[in-house]
């Protein structure tokens, strides 16, 4: 252990030295010439916070960006507070914020009148996928069984998730149900547990849990639950999840990507934007980033600014259609 900590120290020193050297070289160019402000629109320890802190860490340690990148938390309003904050930074290339699908959802459901168009997409970094799980003694053996039951009576399967009604866990199941041909998706009961949805599933209080795939690994390994399908387009290459079919394999033509990416302030100048996109691209190619992704169970998925913007536009359309159908869409 002792050796480990001293080598850690050496590594730290080296990293600091690197950072210094790169800081000096970065000073030659005019951007970046001062510290960044990295923003997590959620609290410490959450998904957004972890993503941006890890990004800042890798960018700094590998010396890709020489300036300090302190992370500030601006939680509230499901990310809306952070979005409002970015509006005050119009044209400032030093403010960078992280988002995921709620960026689109909170606008469509009327929680905020700001949308993904009010920030500058820089790059998509990682993907995570949804999973649909049932208790171990559930009568449903496959996701088709669930959909058949729903087609007969949309109220017959009680679904649940962690997030609020009309938010991610809910929407990802509706995407699947709609693609499977369930008619009255509006009537499918969705129960939002703010704490312990997995316990509710294992206790048999709900019939189906819609959640992130990482959450299902432990109970699945232990045989406490069964995962019927993942929302990824191809099978996920990780331990027990390898056995779980995708929706597509089950004959349901749908995917749901829980993407996470970085955004700049609205009206970010082109040159600085290009610099950041390039820096992020470089970062995703480093072994350090691979390591971080592996440890956190993230699927690497780099997508540069323009492609990312088009992807957002398309997803926005899909979600809007769904939310209109269940009556949650609020025009701004």
């Amino acid at each position: 252990m002792k050796r480990k900590s001293s080598s850690l120290l050496a590594f730290g020193l080296l990293a600091a030295l690197f950072a210094l050297v790169f800081a000096a070289s970065a000073l030659a160019a005019d951007f970046p010439s001062r510290p960044f402000e990295f923003i997590a629109p959620g609290g410490a320890g959450g998904g957004w916070d972890t993503t941006i802190r890890m990004t800042a860490k890798v960018l700094g340690e590998t010396g890709i960006i020489g300036q300090p990148m302190p992370v500030f938390n601006k939680p509230g309003g499901g990310g809306g507070v952070g979005l409002a904050y970015m509006q005050k930074k119009k044209g400032d290339p030093y403010s960078v914020i992280v988002y995921s699908p709620p960026l689109i959802l909170i606008n469509l459901t009327g929680q905020t009148n700001l949308s993904f168009k009010d920030v500058t997409p820089l790059a998509m970094l990682i993907n995570d996928f949804g999973a649909f799980a049932v208790p171990k003694d559930s009568p449903y053996r496959t996701i088709e069984d669930v959909m058949e039951a729903l087609k007969k009576d949309p109220k017959s399967v009680k679904t649940g998730g962690n997030s609020a009604f009309g938010s991610m866990d809910h929407i990802q199941f509706l995407v699947a149900a709609k693609a499977a041909g369930v008619k009255d998706i509006k009537n499918i009961p969705y129960i939002s547990f703010q704490e312990g949805p997995m316990a509710a599933l294992m206790g048999g209080h709900i019939d189906l849990l819609s959640t992130g795939m990482a959450e299902t690994v432990g109970p699945l390994e232990a045989g406490e639950i069964r995962v019927l399908a993942l929302t990824s387009s191809t099978r996920v290459d990780a331990d027990v999840l390898r056995e779980v079919p995708t929706l597509k394999e089950s004959g349901i033509d749908a995917t749901f990507i829980n993407w996470r990416g970085l955004f700049g302030a609205p009206g970010m100048p082109e040159q600085e934007k290009a610099y950041m996109v390039e820096a992020l691209k470089k970062m995703t190619e480093t072994p350090e980033w691979n390591d971080v992704c592996a440890k956190n169970g993230w699927v690497k998925a780099f997508m540069p600014a323009d492609e990312f913007a088009a992807f957002l536009e398309e997803t926005n359309g899909t979600y809007k259609e769904l939310l209109t159908e269940i009556g949650l869409f609020k025009a701004q």
Binding site: G45, P219, E221, E224
Partner: peptide, 27 residues
Amino acid sequence: TLGVPGSGTTAVMLGALMILGLQPGPL
């Protein structure tokens, strides 16, 4: 014992465990 976090703190601990390559639960 079940891999089910009961509070904010235990949820963060669960996340940390998974990063360390441990899967809490009966196993």
